[in-house]
Design a protein around this nucleic acid. Structure first.
Length: 290
DNA sequence: CTCCAGGTTCCGG
DNA sequence: CCGGAACATGGA
């Protein structure tokens, strides 16, 4: 929104191999909203308007570097996709998800948002994310763009459980509050985790209430750049069972986890995101379609 | 109305 | 380690 009533100033950057819509609508981030033929959102504490036309990205003036880093435009999708297994389902997902990038989110807002995501539909996660930003975040603006930052751990830790429940958090409210308290109190250090190996980082995140293996893997993948992290939610579990364990009985969670870590390779998290987005968008089986 | 959603936690085999 | 159940809320 242009709060000064003047035409916004733009910066432009070339973005080969990038699809803004797929990237923002693939269930990895939840606060961006469509605005005209683009999207309006906040990167850390900077409100940004983004619009793509073919390989050109128009962004709010002066935010090119911020945007380029956030959307990980420096990474080669060609090289990443080359490491995927070449089975039919994976190929279909790769073709469908051309230009989808895994972005670099701030750790806390990513973690907090995924704590609120458990057993929720994407549309509702978006609603909760927006409510939390509007009620507890700071109103911020930049070059005529405005928005709300994600509230700090200290801020959410200071809210009552009831106040948080009023954001339609349900049983997740005490989890979000307790996790915020642990981080605000230094019991878990989200910056220190950056230096940890994957397994240690995961177990450290799992110390937080409301954080299990799935949410921890989302944070590792979407905020810490750990590309092997492979979140297994209901959709991906379904895909794995129907595509890679077709007709087999007694496929346990452990079995799926082991398979995900050995089959998809060093960028398994990317492969997971492509399979997830393809399956969810098409509501189709990846199996028996050649 | 019923079913399910980018799960986690606790509990008894 | 494994399967079940409870947990809030709102779309489909």
């Amino acid at each position: 929104m242009s709060s000064r009533g003047v035409a916004p100033r733009w910066s432009e950057l070339r973005v080969p191999d990038f699809d803004l819509e797929k990237t923002l609508e693939s269930g990895q981030v939840f606060h961006w909203v469509r605005h005209g033929d683009g999207f309006r959102g906040v990167i850390d504490r900077t409100p940004v308007l983004v619009r793509q036309r073919s390989d050109r990205l128009r962004v709010t003036a002066g935010t090119q570097k911020l945007v380029a880093n956030y959307f990980a435009l420096d990474e080669s999708l060609t090289k990443i996709c080359a490491t995927f297994p070449a089975d039919p389902a994976m190929r279909r997902a790769v073709e469908f998800c051309h230009g989808l990038r895994i972005i670099r989110q701030p750790a806390w807002e990513c973690l907090a948002t995924f704590i609120t995501s458990s057993l929720k539909q994407v549309s509702h996660i978006k609603q909760i994310s927006r409510t939390i930003r509007e009620r507890f975040g700071d109103a911020i603006s930049n070059d005529g763009e405005s928005g709300f930052s994600y509230p700090s751990p200290e801020c959410l830790a200071a809210q009552s459980e009831r106040t948080l429940r009023d954001c339609k958090l349900g049983f997740r409210a005490p989890n979000l509050r307790a996790a915020a308290k642990m981080i605000a109190g230094g019991k878990v250090d989200l910056e220190a985790i950056r230096a940890f190996p994957d397994d240690e980082a995961r177990s450290e995140l799992c110390r937080l209430p409301g954080v299990g293996p799935k949410v921890a893997n989302c944070v590792l993948l979407f905020a810490y750049g750990r590309r092997r992290a492979f979140p297994i939610d209901v959709w991906i579990a379904r895909v794995l069972r129907e595509v890679y364990f077709k007709g087999k009985r007694g496929v346990t969670q452990k079995r799926l986890e082991h398979f995900s870590q050995t089959y998809f390779g060093e960028h398994g998290g990317y492969a997971q995101q492509y399979l997830f987005h393809y399956a969810r968008t098409n509501r189709a089986r990846l199996t028996n379609e050649n």
